[in-house]
Design a protein around this nucleic acid. Structure first.
Length: 264
DNA sequence: ATGCCTTTTTTGAAAAGA
């Protein structure tokens, strides 16, 4: 493989409903590895042909009917794929694989956590915190150089949300979630690539609700998607952008793709 | 913030997203 690798994370909100913009994105950006979340398709119904026609012949799928689902689609070989059940209930929220240079990519869709930020009143919120804890335990024992990316469903910094004051009690930006995410980050000294390239306090969002009349004008975004790397890979990342334009394409996902380039 | 939008499947109301 070449020493340059372009890796994308994109919560696609149904890969079948979004196949036209996926194809456009691959033609325009030509990533080496595309990591999708919320594919919303069983493995036997995944639209593999579209990807193979564009030269993406390595597909690693972890889908389920209707909800969730993740996939890694690559034009470079991937090995030793794994699917962790950090949800502990069988939901398809992780897939990972190893590049030929030994670096692993772990693609995760952390649960949103429901409406009420309280474990007793809302079991989904507890599931989200427990998912983070299992990832933290995994991170603490991790020795492989790793790119951890996906939809983490937490926006930790004030500059990661359109209004800190109006969202401080809204799931995705509560203090308990921010603290829980910080513990995960500390467990492996994960490097936040988003903030390495676009430092706080610059505005940085990856998701805009469908409910806004004009998402770009109101710009009520949140940074829910993240790319983290092991400390030894920090200097291998040479660029990182959020492709906001794709949020404005026809029939968009509510998340934008995150594009990171590495030089190994 | 989510009455507001968009997806899925049991074709059509309901759940989920965040």
């Amino acid at each position: 493989m070449s020493d340059t690798l372009k890796v994308v994370s994109w919560n696609i909100n149904s890969v079948r409903a979004r196949i036209e913009i996926v194809e456009r994105f691959l033609k325009e950006e030509a990533p080496d590895v595309l990591c999708l979340q919320e594919t919303k398709v069983r493995n036997d119904q995944f639209p593999e042909g579209t990807f193979r026609q564009l030269g993406y012949n390595h597909l690693i799928l972890n889908g389920q009917p209707m909800h969730h689902g993740v996939a890694m689609i690559s034009r470079v070989p991937l090995h030793k794929d794994e699917r962790f059940d950090w949800q502990a209930n069988g939901e398809a929220r992780h897939v990972g694989a190893r590049l030929e240079n030994g670096v692993r990519i772990e693609n995760v869709y952390i649960p949103a956590g429901g409406e009420i930020p309280n474990r007793e009143e809302n079991p989904k919120f507890g599931q989200k915190l427990d998912f983070y804890q299992r990832m933290t335990d995994w991170s603490a024992a991790l020795e492989t150089p790793t790119i951890l990316l996906g939809d983490f469903n937490v926006a930790p910094l004030e500059s990661d949300v359109w209004s800190h004051k109006q969202l401080i009690n809204v799931v995705s930006h509560t203090q308990i979630e921010i603290d829980t995410m910080a513990k995960l980050q500390a467990a492996h000294d994960w490097v936040d690539i988003g903030r390495k390239f676009i430092p706080d306090p610059e505005r940085l969002y990856t998701w805009w609700s469908y409910r806004a009349r004009d998402w770009r004008a109101s710009d009520k975004g949140r940074r829910l998607d993240h790319v983290w790397v092991s400390p030894e890979l920090e200097n291998k990342a040479v660029s990182h952008v959020v492709h906001e334009d794709a949020r404005g394409w026809a029939k968009p996902s509510d998340h934008a793709p995150l594009i990171t380039e590495f030089k190994f």
